[in-house]
């Protein structure tokens, strides 16, 4: 391609202060991260930011021309809203560039208590129609929506034409079932909720066993969710990526296969469709992942913006199960 395109914002994940600095240094335009505890959807042991760390992260990012977005994107249950409200107040007090919110009650609290704070609507809110997005824009002055990964590029274009806010779309990383913000699989097995406790497949329920032939059994709680043969690539220990014996098939990926989303080839189409921010998944991943993925996408976005073809060959090594997909984005054929 030779035509120049408008440069979109590259939004990158960070699970620790060191990852955040890595993402900024690798060329992220914006970094999203969360506080320690259940208020964000990546509540893993050893991950996330204290208030002091988030304050320093804001300084580090903003001094280098990057934005810091705080994800407060899980759903408080009755009697626990104070934890979420405090996270919101804390984020506002340290001048984060935007708060990514999912819960409708917290969106109300945020927009009424801190009317000047920029709000993004999390993918966890599952708003995929113009009607739903317009409701959030009208009521809470949402400035950007992170779209669920269920839409084709053509559908994104249609949504874009009917909403007043910016669109952020995922371009790389783990891809869950098409029920963002609504998945109850982990809750069913462990009693802990991805959406309310902020963690899918809590680590203390995950066990691996390797037998003498190097077959690896993955268990979540009392359920075996996969048995990976010697030499086969492994995936995340989530129920949606497991293999099961179901009525007509054995060892069947009943929900979906362990693959990673990679939309590098669709970047120009996404931008054309009106996407202003490109999001990389992976707050649970290491600095090495952040360094590699962020710098690859920085080059890719810059190359496309200059009308050149980027080299994206390094990204496959970081994908789950060494497999990648464009998911639902090119067409609805993806299951």
């Amino acid at each position: 391609m030779s035509e120049q395109i408008t440069k979109p914002e590259l939004v990158c994940p960070a699970g620790t202060p060191a990852s955040l600095r890595t993402a900024v240094d690798a060329g992220a335009d914006a970094i999203y991260c969360g506080f320690v505890g259940p208020t964000n959807a990546r509540n893993f042991p050893g991950l996330n930011f204290s208030l002091d760390e988030m304050t320093k992260a804001v300084d580090y990012a903003q001094q280098r021309g990057a934005k810091l977005l705080t994800a407060i994107n899980s759903f408080p249950t009755a009697g626990r809203t104070d934890i979420w409200k405090k996270a919101i107040d804390d984020a506002v007090s340290i001048n984060v560039d935007a708060i990514i919110i999912a819960d409708i009650g917290m969106a109300k609290y945020l927009s009424e208590t801190h009317p000047d704070q920029r709000i993004h609507l999390s993918v966890q809110a599952g708003a995929s129609s113009p009607e739903a997005i317009n409701f959030y824009c009208d009521r809470f002055d949402i400035k950007r929506v992170v779209l669920p990964r269920i839409l084709t590029v053509a559908e994104i274009k249609k949504v874009h034409d009917e909403i007043p806010c910016e669109i952020e779309a995922f371009i790389f990383g783990n891809i869950g079932m098409m029920a963002e913000g609504r998945c109850s699989l982990t809750n069913y097995v462990t009693g802990l909720s991805t959406n309310m406790d902020g963690v899918c497949s809590p680590a203390n329920f995950v066990h691996y066993e390797e037998d003498k032939d190097k077959n690896l059994t993955t268990r979540l709680g009392e359920y075996a969710i996969d048995c990976i043969g010697c030499g086969e690539n492994a995936g995340y220990p989530t129920i949606c990526k497991g293999r099961y014996n179901v009525g007509h098939r054995a060892e069947y990926y009943a929900f979906e296969e362990p693959v990673s989303l990679n939309l590098t080839h669709l970047l120009p189409d996404l931008i054309e469709a009106g996407v202003t921010a490109l999001k990389i998944e992976g707050r649970q991943r290491s600095k090495a992942y952040i360094r590699s993925v962020v710098s690859s996408f920085r080059q890719a976005v810059d190359a496309y913006s200059n009308g050149e073809q980027p080299d994206i060959s390094d990204l496959l090594a970081l994908t789950e199960g060494h497999k990648e997909t464009m998911g639902a984005f090119p067409s609805k054929k993806w299951r």
Partner: peptide
């Protein structure tokens, strides 16, 4: 190297208390 990628490739193997392993990985990574 990214530890998840090493695990996906079966270059490292982990058994036992996954919570402690994840915490150690994240602490070292920071």
């Amino acid at each position: 190297s990214d530890s998840d990628a090493l695990f996906f490739n079966r270059e490292i193997m982990v058994t036992g208390d996954s919570e402690a392993m994840v915490a150690l990985r994240n602490a070292l990574d920071d």
